[in-house]
Amino acid sequence: MSIPLTLTVNGTVRDLVLEDSRVTLLDLLRERLHLTGSKKGCDRGQCGACTVLVDGRRINACLALAVSLDGATVITIEGLAASGGESGDALHPVQAAFIAHDGFQCGFCTPGQIMSAVGLIAEGQAGTDPERVREGMSGNLCRCGAYAGISEAVLAAQGIALREDAA
């Protein structure tokens, strides 16, 4: 059975046909659309390496069936700079903050961490306390233990977002 599906992925409308209703958003992104920034870590929704934004909300792409998202807007790490109104050549403020604050080590979890941080800030849930950031990001695991840098990066990026909102 062929299942038509339309998604807007990183600003581009994609008309797709799925042959299997069990295809996850993560597999669709990685295998059909060749957007490999979202990682397949645990494939059970426990590590957060596959975090993307769907209609502005962060989700674990490994848990979402693609067919359930017909008509949705998906932002992956590859489209993050462009989604922020940038030309695509400039880093998103969260990406820049992760670099400035050493918010990564091996880098495997970094795309999911960044996407979760963008969602956390957009939801207004980051606060000003590193502990609150850690709680809000608790669904994203880092095997290297870069949590201090991640929290600092999120707080720094939130400060940028707050200043831009005030302007």
Rank of each mutant, 00 (worst) to 15 (best):
R58P: 06
D43P: 07
N60F: 09
A82H: 08
G37V: 09
D70W: 02
V94W: 03
V67G: 04
Q46F: 08
G41P: 01
F104D: 02
D129Q: 12
M115H: 06
C42G: 03
R58D: 08
G127M: 09
K39D: 09
I75Y: 02
R30Y: 13
G85W: 10
A100C: 12
I114D: 00
V118W: 07
A64G: 07
G41K: 00
Q95R: 06
E123N: 11
A100V: 05
I59F: 09
A64F: 12
G79W: 02
Q125A: 15
V23A: 07
R22W: 09
G41R: 00
R22G: 08
L28F: 11
G84K: 05
L25G: 00
G107C: 13
C42F: 00
T76C: 03
F98D: 01
S83P: 14
S87H: 15
A97G: 04
C62G: 01
L80F: 07
P130K: 02
C106L: 13
L63T: 11
G107P: 03
A61C: 05
L80E: 01
L33A: 03
L33W: 08
I121R: 01
T73I: 13
G85F: 12
I99D: 12
A64I: 02
T76Y: 00
E31I: 08
R132L: 13
E123Q: 15
G127T: 07
T128G: 15
T128M: 15
G119N: 03
V52W: 02
E131N: 15
D43A: 09
L25Q: 01
C42V: 02
Q95T: 11
A117K: 05
V118F: 09
A81V: 12
D20F: 10
